[in-house]
Design a protein around this nucleic acid. Structure first.
Length: 465
RNA sequence: GGAGCCGUAGCUCAACUGGUUAGAGCGCCUCCCUGUCACGGAGGAGGUUGCGGGUUCAAGUCCCGUCGGUUCCGCCA
């Protein structure tokens, strides 16, 4: 018999059908047993009486979280038996047949209740149970639809989706790399991408004028509630654009997507303020503009921050970039940039998108003229040889004809976390890590065999006695 | 790298200034129950208080170390 999704049972009243799902709750009244069955679309009450002798015997041993299949008639409930708190409260399935597809140990916690207050070690270790809970189901589904709507929007604007490599080159600047040893070149390493930055710029040189991808980005820096080793980034780049054109497009996308989800936006259009104004007004380059009432209502307050200083001094008193070495200086600062003069005053064509106190995106117009990019590295103290070793491939690519271009990367988890009102990234990730980078549902990181180490040209560290 | 908080039953928590046999609710097990929907009733099982050491007549409680979780600073183009 064909399976009916529980959500669609109201259409089947008076008919015999089949449902499959988990035992959510069992209420055993002796001669009368109620089973609430849950599938990914909803819940329904199943009634089992001794009239269906075999089913009744089977139902007596059912426990929470067993996976079962049932056949029976979908009946409208009598007026006095209606449960108005449940979407399917006006009907029930009177079982005529029951198949146990999988029995279940007593779960360490019940996904029938919200799991938010529970011990995170248990939630992460038994993530597959945690994810059964209504809130986690909702968050993961919102994330999926969020991404899908961004995709649809970008396709409608003529973008093409292109995947870039996961095994790529380590870059000395920026954050710490995750490294992957090479078997064919022992002692050499790939790096996992911190972002698709360089590849997407090469795509601009390749004639793909509007690119995007949902890119996995990896950084080996300490974790926080709003930051993990891995995150997904909605990454895009466009040729022949100005800063405002990129910002306008992203703003339209955010408004389209968030309003679909019924979210209230504090400002439309988004305020655009300079870095200097942000520091003066809020004391920070990311800030929360909402009143306490708006916070309670879950309002989203987006704003753009622009005109960041290109460089700042690091601990060694050397100049380093504040956001992105591939950015273009403001037009009126290009001359001093090329001459490496008044470096602290140079403003980058950089824009950050902030929302409710979080940075949710950042991008820039890029330096597509090789001499500007070269000057950036010169300012940071690179010798000609060091520049070539680091970014020769970019300079070379830009020497064969590249359009002016710019783009942005937007953190997907962070955006969904804010939109769902969650306090932690982990609430919108299916399989998050612990704060020290352990994979809770699997044993990672873990040792590898001596054979694997040998193949990679790596030496096992000797155990200390 | 640094700081705070936390770790007691499967889960959530309690145990006053160190003092009987470490308790409760939920869950779990057994029995009873034909209209519940967090069903109800009766009974029961379940603990090396994260781990190691120390102080003390006596440690869940105090001290030291360690492991784990979490939050923040550093860090995160």
């Amino acid at each position: 018999m064909a399976r009916t999704l529980i959500k669609y049972l109201p259409e089947k009243i008076g008919q015999t059908t089949s449902i499959s799902g988990w035992v959510d709750v069992r209420r055993d009244h002796g001669k009368l047993i109620f089973i609430d069955v849950r599938d990914e679309t909803g819940k329904v009450q199943v009634v089992i009486t001794p009239k269906a002798e075999k089913v009744y015997e089977q139902a007596e041993i059912l426990r929470s979280e067993w996976v079962i299949q049932l056949e029976g008639e979908v009946k409208a409930r009598k007026e006095n038996l209606i449960n108005s708190n449940e979407p399917n409260g006006k009907l029930e399935l009177v079982a005529s047949s029951l198949t146990v597809l999988s029995n279940a140990e007593t779960p360490p916690f019940t996904p029938t209740k919200d799991t938010l207050g529970l011990n995170e070690e248990a939630r992460l270790a038994y993530r597959y149970i945690d994810l059964r809970s209504a809130r986690m189901q909702k968050n993961i589904r919102i994330r999926s639809e969020w991404v899908q709507r961004c995709r649809s929007f970008l396709f409608s604007k003529g973008f093409i989706e292109i995947e870039t490599p996961i095994l790529t080159q380590s870059t000395p600047e920026g954050s710490r790399d995750f490294l992957v040893p090479s078997r064919h070149a022992p002692g050499n390493f790939y790096a996992l991408p911190q972002s698709p930055q360089q590849y997407k710029q090469l795509l601009m040189a390749s004639g793909f004028e509007k690119y995007f991808q949902i890119a996995r980005c990896v950084r080996d820096e300490d974790l926080r509630a709003d930051r993990g080793y891995e995150h997904s980034q909605l990454d895009l780049e466009m040729s022949f654009v100005t800063r405002d054109e990129v910002m306008d497009l992203i703003e339209e996308m955010i408004i389209t997507v968030t309003e679909h989800f019924g979210k209230e936006l504090k400002h439309k259009p988004f305020p655009r303020i300079t870095y200097a104004e942000a520091l003066h007004t809020y004391g920070a380059d990311k800030f929360d503009m909402r009143s306490s009432d708006e916070k309670n209502r879950g309002v989203l307050a987006y704003a753009w921050v622009t005109d960041f200083p290109f460089f700042e001094k690091n601990d060694d008193d050397k100049w380093t970039f504040t956001h992105n070495p591939f950015s273009m200086p403001r037009e009126d600062h290009i001359n001093q940039h090329l001459k490496c003069e008044r470096i602290g005053e140079i403003i980058a064509q950089q824009y950050d998108l902030v929302c409710n106190g979080f940075e949710v995106g950042g991008g820039s117009i890029r330096a597509h003229r090789p001499e500007i990019l070269r000057a950036t590295y010169k300012i940071m103290g690179y010798s000609d040889d060091e520049i070539n070793a680091s970014i020769d491939h970019m300079l070379r690519a830009f020497s064969y004809g590249v359009p002016p271009h710019g783009g942005i990367g937007m953190g997907i988890e962070r955006g969904v976390m804010i939109a769902t009102g969650e306090q932690s990234l982990r609430e919108v990730q299916a399989f998050p890590m612990t704060g020290k980078g352990r994979v809770a549902v699997m044993n990672a990181p873990s040792p590898v065999s001596e054979k694997q180490m040998r193949e990679l040209g790596l030496t096992l560290r000797k155990e200390k006695k």
